[in-house]
């Protein structure tokens, strides 16, 4: 792109989206508080734990007032929101640390896993998709297509467990979980890399079918278009036609839509991080849910929603860049 990027239009679109994102996040946070208020969950009992069973009613009422639970729903929500904007998300009861510290400590590991998995899915999906699109209805097309449907239906936690069984238990070549070996207390590059292989591969492969099917469809369509026919007529080699012409136009829509895959990525991460005891925020979400840690769970739900909104924005920006007819009016 020699003309330079249309920064102005992109910035305006991003600004407009942020303007729309604020009410979405407000409604989601309020929804989170409303669900909690409607549920039998009692913050006082959760806070007091077993001590709450023996405490006098007077003490419990005092605690209730201290925690602000006797305030109306809207008041509590507003309180949380103003604190959250100041960076104070409350304390996690299960991990015994401030929620913001938990997120800061773990988000890097989650990002590492997610980015590696996306790279695996994009690279494998694209190459398989191109190979399959070269001969529609051929052996590879049919095998890879069927495998894609089966993989799409297979739950990620099940794939993860089978991978642990095969690579960690039977072959013993890769660790079954965690970030480092149990014996070591320092985090080294080699340790992390070897522990990353299985979770990233499983998460990537569980995302693979979408990428594969998208590229296959895109390249198949592109192979039927005039520029490709023109390239063939000029006598360009099949390789140039396939990789230089068909892949370029067939892959673009997939690349631009990567951002909209964030929800699926989060879903996969929730399962894969739990299976492999990966110390990321998705595993923390499951821990928070298991022990009803409202502060942590609420913050992570809002964080995931923000990630989805950012992914959508990224996707629309890239789409507008790739296809100038779409523009940045959305």
């Amino acid at each position: 792109m020699s003309r330079g990027l249309p920064w102005g239009a992109m910035g305006r679109m991003a600004g407009r989206r942020l303007l729309f994102a604020a009410p979405v996040l407000l409604v989601v946070t309020f929804g989170v508080f409303a669900v909690a208020a409607a549920s039998p969950f009692d913050p006082v009992k959760a806070y007091a734990g077993t001590a709450g069973l023996t405490a006098s009613q007077e003490n419990l009422d005092q605690l209730r007032a201290n925690l602000g639970v006797d305030q109306p729903l809207v008041h509590r929500w507003w309180n949380w929101l103003t604190h959250a904007l100041g960076g104070d998300l409350g304390d996690s009861s299960v991990l015994r640390a401030p929620v913001s510290a938990v997120i800061g400590e773990r988000i890097g590991w989650s990002a590492l896993l997610a980015i590696t998995a996306f790279a695996v899915a994009v690279l494998l999906g694209t190459s398989l998709g191109v190979l399959a699109a070269r001969k529609p209805g051929g052996l590879l097309d049919r095998c890879a297509g069927s495998a894609a449907y089966i993989l799409e239906a297979a739950p990620a936690f099940w794939l993860g467990l089978l991978a642990i069984w095969f690579f960690a238990v039977t072959l013993g070549v890769l660790p079954a979980g965690g970030l480092t070996d149990a014996a070591s207390d320092t985090v080294t590059f080699g340790q992390v890399a070897s522990h990353l292989v299985l979770p990233a591969a499983v998460l990537g492969i569980s995302q693979l079918p979408w990428f594969f099917l998208y590229v296959r469809q895109g390249v198949t369509d592109a192979l039927a278009e005039d520029p490709v026919r023109g390239a063939r007529a000029r006598g360009l080699s099949e390789r140039t036609v396939l990789l230089g012409h068909a892949l370029r136009s067939g892959m673009l829509p997939m690349l631009t839509l990567i951002g909209s895959r964030v929800p699926e990525l989060i879903t996969g991460a929730l399962l894969v991080e739990t299976v492999f005891s990966w110390p990321g925020i998705a595993a923390a979400t499951v821990q928070a849910a298991t022990s009803v840690d409202f502060a942590l769970l609420a913050a992570l739900t809002v964080l995931a929603t923000a990630a989805v909104l950012i992914g959508n924005l990224l996707s629309d920006l890239l789409y507008g860049l790739a296809d100038p007819r779409v523009g940045f009016d959305g």
Binding site: G31, V35, P263, T267, L270, V286, A289, A304, T305, N312
Partner: peptide, 22 residues
């Protein structure tokens, strides 16, 4: 509202609801 609640990943919203209601 439908758009708003579609922005929360389904499994996460499900986890949240189940965690709150046991």
């Amino acid at each position: 509202l439908v758009d708003t609640f579609s922005s929360v990943p389904h499994l996460l919203l499900g986890i949240f609801i189940v965690a709150m209601f046991r």
